[in-house]
Amino acid sequence: MPEKSITLEVFRYLPEQSDEPKYQKYDVPYREDWVVLDALNYIKDHIDGSLSYRWSCRMGVCGSCGMMVNGEPRLTCAAFLRDFYPQPIRVEPLTNFPVIRDLIINLEDFLHKLKEVKAWLIPKQEKPVSEGEYLQSPKELATYKQFSMCINCMLCYAACPVYGLEPKFLGPAAIALGQRYNLDSRDGGKEERTDIIASSEGIWECTFIGECSRVCPKHVDPAAAIQRAKVQSTQEWWMSLLLPKGAK
């Protein structure tokens, strides 16, 4: 029985060979339970060892293997061949990012932004470890938990036209992670983060297209984080306007 196969059209960019990318076609065996990442691994092991891409956990949690699959940002470890077969699949590096090589993008910009938003706990009240844990009710946990699920896979940045047009925009994941701490009952760093989150490069740059949330593989819903931050920020602005100084 001849083996079924499927064609992958893969974006190749080899900076030492050419300034321009090209698309290379590979025929790989078609298997019902294979994901696009399995097909890439097959190419790497058996057809073309020079194809470069990132991957690690192959279970949708490390965030390494995000790529454009037929124009949609996807985790390739969760994009099954069977959803495309028998049509060819086009695999490209995530859009809106510079390409280092082949399917590998440069995501340094995000790491700077993560630091800029101070995505770490700034305790409301310092408490020595010897006094035990901060108390946090399940309800308080639930208010930020969703935004803590971000795996930094960058699919939301690839989907966000605002980020594509204005690279200074903090972007969905960085804002969602800033909000994750703002909403944490243990945290008191909201004011420190406001300067950057509520700046023109922050939430107000967002036009609520919602693509970030649509493509998010972990249902973080960064669009919600941003819109809610806008509402909150607006409320606070009015309050500061209406209430005398010092009142809260």
Binding site: Y13, G71, E72, N106, P161, L165, G210, R214
Partner: peptide, 17 residues
């Protein structure tokens, strides 16, 4: 690094946009 410019008709990319 290879930088892909945003196409002028980016909003035609998919139905959502």
């Amino acid at each position: 690094e290879y930088v892909r410019p945003m196409p002028a008709n980016w909003f035609m990319h998919n139905r959502h946009l």
